[in-house]
């Protein structure tokens, strides 16, 4: 052994070390991005007396009540959650000839100009004993109803669903206007009444 070379460092265990780290990160990682129903709470009432003043005609309100037994009452009718969406959709779309359906009011809408817009409001009231699961189900159906009505209208007017319009609204000004127009025709008005504790559950 006259010629003595510097021996290479054995890199065979590098893979093992890397694997060890890899497994650590695999275990600790949480890939779940939080998903959920985004809602906006109404700002606090400035004046308690003001609450009494707001007076809306009965025909403009779609009342949804949920009691402590998770039963649903929509516009005075006892229904199942699965039936709720169709009923709400019908209400949001409205019918100018039907005196039971919400009134119309002329409003400025992009692209369409001034057109009559339904004065619909969906009012949701739950009991303190309602389970959270039921509450989310009802909220979900209400949001779904609005979304579907918007989609149908957008598809009819512009050949694209509202979801697509929103997705593409970054790319062009016209599409953004189209999306805004649909949103203005069917504004999402979900009002939550002050809760009551009738069911006695706490």
């Amino acid at each position: 052994m006259a010629k003595r070379e510097i021996s290479e460092i054995n890199a065979g265990s590098m893979a093992d070390i890397a694997f060890l780290l890899l497994i650590f990160f695999l275990v600790t990682t949480t890939m779940d991005t939080d998903t959920g129903l985004l809602r906006r709470l109404p700002p606090p009432p400035e004046d308690i007396n003001e609450l009494e003043k707001i007076d809306i005609k009965q025909r403009n309100i779609f009342e949804v009540l949920v009691n402590a037994n998770d039963q649903l009452l929509a516009k005075g009718e006892y229904i199942q959650v699965t039936e709720l969406k169709e009923k709400v959709k019908e209400f949001i779309k409205g019918d100018p000839s039907n005196p039971e359906m919400p009134e119309y009011k002329d409003e400025e809408v992009p692209i369409f100009g001034t057109i009559p817009v339904s004065k619909q409001i969906v009012s949701l009231q739950n009991d303190n004993g309602t389970t959270y699961q039921m509450y989310i189900k009802v909220q979900n159906e209400l949001i779904a109803a609005y979304r579907e009505v918007r989609n149908e209208r957008a598809l009819k007017e512009f050949g694209k669903s509202y979801d697509e319009l929103v997705k593409l609204s970054e790319t062009s000004e016209t599409i953004k206007n189209q999306a805004d127009a649909i949103k203005a025709i069917y504004p999402q008005r979900i009002s939550e009444a002050e809760p009551k504790a009738i069911g006695g559950a706490k």
Binding site: L37, L41, P43, P44, N128, G129, T131, Y132, P195
Partner: peptide
């Protein structure tokens, strides 16, 4: 039950934390 959730919601309204996610 919704009782406690509603209490939290009312409290959030009072402090002007309005953008919520269920």
């Amino acid at each position: 039950k919704m009782g406690i959730v509603t209490e939290v919601k009312q409290e959030m309204r009072k402090v002007n934390a309005l953008k919520i996610n269920y």
